[in-house]
């Protein structure tokens, strides 16, 4: 047997085996084909593809599958924001309206103006302080300023200001709500930007107790409720609450509040609405 025959023989054998296996594979791919939704593939292409998990699902493909099955909201991707939601909506044939962006609001204005109850020595973390004696502040509802939210924010949008209160950088905030869940004292809450008149306190203590420990705490004096022209403010358990649907942003409560608890982030619509 010479060398040329050996080479051609082996080439024929291997080539025929390859041909047979190829036919089997083609048959198998037709027979056992997994039906994939083409829309899911299209949605995955639109998504950012970072697999960050900020939406609450295992990754972008999981989120896409859930969106197509209507198990997840179309605007569920906090990283992509409105642009991505619009594209996902166009793939699914639905129109997406731009939702108002929500930011965490800090419902405490105490900070350095609220006295310390204990002289804390230990781990520098709000949750660790909270395990001891309801926190270190005189007000057991107040912000302790140890920065658990700063470390929790995945986008670096929170920093501590000079009053030892968290400050939210609205450009960097993605409204993911991680800080709201992490805060052990429930200070932070997600609220839209148009609700710009806020009560910066959540203390349910009596007015006398609040005044003894905090300069800016709500004492439940009801002056805001009496002055509100549209009756948007209710005071329960020594704490004022503003109904954002009724509020007309007139700013009377902000002017009248003796403790400066009620504040506004933007200028008033009309400063002298009566």
């Amino acid at each position: 047997m010479n060398g040329a025959l050996l080479i051609s023989e082996s080439a024929i054998i291997i080539g025929s085996i390859g041909f047979l296996v190829g036919i089997v594979l083609i048959w198998a791919s037709i027979k056992f084909a997994v039906e994939t939704n083409p829309i899911v593939e299209e949605v995955i292409e639109v998504l950012p593809g970072a697999n960050c998990g900020a939406c609450g699902y295992a990754g972008c493909s999981d989120f896409a599958e859930k969106v197509v099955n209507e198990a997840a909201p179309i605007a569920g991707c906090p990283v992509g924001g409105f642009d991505v939601a619009k594209q996902v909506g166009s793939k699914l044939g639905q129109e997406v309206k731009e939702a108002e962006k929500k930011y965490p609001k800090i419902r405490c204005n105490g900070g350095v103006h609220c006295i310390d109850k204990i002289d804390y020595i230990g781990i520098d973390d709000c949750k660790a302080v909270m395990m001891i004696s309801d926190g270190e502040k005189g007000c057991s509802y107040g912000c302790m300023g140890r920065g658990t939210c700063v470390r929790a924010c995945p986008f670096g949008a929170i920093s501590m200001d000079i009053n030892r209160l968290p400050h939210i950088n609205k450009k960097m905030c993605k409204s993911c709500g991680v800080c709201v869940n992490e805060c052990p004292n429930n200070i932070l809450v997600l609220g839209s930007e148009s609700e710009n008149v806020n009560v910066l306190c959540r203390s349910l203590d009596k007015g006398k107790d609040v005044k003894a420990v905090c300069e800016f705490g709500c004492i439940g004096c009801r002056i805001c409720a009496k002055n509100c022209p549209v009756e948007a403010i209710t005071v329960t358990n020594f704490l004022a609450e503003i109904d954002p649907e009724k509020c007309t942003h007139c700013g009377l409560c902000v002017e009248k509040c003796p403790q400066k608890t009620i504040t506004t982030s933007t200028p008033f619509v009309s400063s002298a609405a009566t």
């Binding site: 230990g122 781990i123 973390d125 949750k127 660790a128 395990m131």
Partner: peptide, 13 residues
Amino acid sequence: RHLLQLIRYSKHA
């Protein structure tokens, strides 16, 4: 080090 507090913190978590 605040060993006990850190362990207690992990138990709490």
